[in-house]
Computed example of a mutant assay.
Amino acid sequence: MFDGIDIVVLPVADTGPLRELYVDLMGFEVVEDGPVRDADVRARLWDLPLPPAESVLLGKPGSRGGWIRLVGVPGLPAPDPAGVPDRPGAYALDFYLRDPAAAEEALEGRGWTFVAGPVDYLLPGTDHPVRERMLDQTRSGLRHAFVQYREGRTRCVLGERPEEDVSEVNAVVFATGDLPGARAFVTDVLGGRVYFSGRFDGPAVERLLGLPAGAGFDAAIARGPASRNARLEFIEHIAPAAPRPPHSYPRVVAGCAVDDLDALAARLAGGGHGRSTGIVETADGPRLGLRSTYGAGFEFWRR
């Protein structure tokens, strides 16, 4: 059973700039650093066009999920800009920040840019206030949502470690052209729980993402029974103003431990939810890769 995303795999041609971003500026710690074992097998699991060479695992000690694995793939094509969510695929990672203004100033001082200024809005269907700003993470073609941490209202490592200023990854956002199918996949195949379903729109959301007036999208956010981070979020992609080619490789692979890998493999074997590798053996034990039809890439292993 799915119970959150344990490790967020980010394939890039050069891990250096993202190591600087996540370690130097966002306070992640290097847990492991070295060559990729079983490179050809990992390329198959992660659906990469070239074998990976380097792996840098970054974590927030005390967190329960939401770690980042930077995967160096020499020769990997440069990613297209994320832009607005107008095609299927990985779109954003979400983080909570204790002092967003200070963190954003430090990031801008190191050359990182934001889509627009911060916005404030209420989480749809609630009276929960959200302060959010979008970083343009160009190295892997993603947006990063920086959300104001609110004591007692938002679950993450910041509640356990007062010395931390930035959380673990608290959500991975995939755009999809089949939101009903993605919801059914989460509940019926992964055994997750969709705890939020609603529409994001209005002037604040338009400014946040650089959307045209009147644009918005429906979203579904899922956790497992233990409600731990990081969450899995699907958003309905917006029809593009002009056709955009699909991503040539997964920008994000969501790594998830599950209770019964064999049962999951059986549910995916028919191909109705995407292209599965089936269970393959690696130096770290059995793994299963999935390039889903919902814009999301996954790697699963036994809990």
Rank of each mutant, 00 (worst) to 15 (best):
A53P: 01
A53H: 11
E54G: 04
V56A: 03
V56D: 01
V56I: 15
V56W: 04
L57N: 03
L58C: 12
K60A: 03
G62N: 09
G62Y: 06
G62T: 10
S63E: 11
R64C: 14
R64M: 13
W67K: 08
R69F: 00
R69G: 08
P74R: 10
G75V: 05
G75M: 06
P77I: 07
P79V: 00
P79Q: 10
P81F: 05
P81E: 10
A82M: 11
A82K: 04
A82Y: 05
A82L: 06
P85F: 02
P85G: 00
P85K: 00
P85N: 00
R87N: 01
P88K: 05
P88V: 06
Y91L: 06
L93G: 02
L93D: 03
D94W: 01
D94E: 13
Y96R: 09
L97T: 01
L97E: 00
R98W: 09
R98D: 07
D99N: 15
D99M: 06
A103S: 12
E105T: 14
A106P: 08
A106G: 12
L107W: 10
E108K: 11
G109V: 12
R110W: 12
G111A: 09
T113L: 15
T113C: 12
T113H: 14
F114W: 13
V115R: 15
A116W: 06
P118R: 03
D120E: 15
G125M: 03
T126G: 01
T126E: 01
T126A: 01
T126S: 11
H128P: 01
P129C: 05
P129F: 03
